[in-house]
Amino acid sequence: MAENFLKIENLNVEVDGKHILKNLSLSVEKGSVNVILGPNGSGKSTLMNVIMGNPQYTVTSGSITFEGEDILPLKTFERARRGLFLSFQTPEEIAGVTVENMLRTAKAAASGEKIRLIPFRKELLATMEELKIDADYAKRDLNVGFSGGEKKKSEILQLLTLNPKLALLDETDSGLDVDAVQIVSKGVAKFHNKDNAVLIITHNAKILENLSVNKVYVLMDGRKVEEGGADLIEKIEREGFSHIQEGA
């Protein structure tokens, strides 16, 4: 079933009439860890948003399937309920909605069951402790007044609590200090198992330290210019993107 997890074929995407993603194809196998590299403006975040169904982007052609199902007609929340999760580069601040309330609502919505408060809270607080998030944050408004690092940890808390099938991590390590990157990296490693998969955008190989990378894609100007194994990361770190551009 591996090839039936996430499959993107010849995807073309526009925003405000501007052609961003160009004939992009890639696939994510069940149980795998995948990395997307590329300079700023290469379309990495756009790709994540399109997979999640952000209505600001228009798919002009191509397909995205998840577990064999065409997900393009699905709304964002329907995709989430199929098991997709996006860790945002800039998480939104939602006033008046606590971290705990949002996660409990989301979990109930995804499972279609009532989530009992006490066991849920116990599990949430345990996860928060692992991520070194102060217990008070459960009662705080979602991301309101959180520092950059706290917001990213809050994303990983959500990932671990909602336990999706495919985690899309959009620069979850950016703006974090060394310790926080370690915590996030361990959180992602804790999440990952043979029945789910991870697709990570990063500029920093440190987040990958606790993970074993299966596949690496390099995006430039909305196109996939190279793909390979984990060794591609080292090569890019050593030589940068310009080398690839010449070869492409």
């Binding site: 952000n54 209505p55 964002t76 929340f77 995709r79 997709l84 999760f85 996006l86 998480p91 989301a106």
Partner: peptide
């Protein structure tokens, strides 16, 4: 969009 990406309906 952010809340919907967590499975919460529109």
């Amino acid at each position: 969009f952010y809340l919907m990406s967590r499975g919460i309906s529109e």
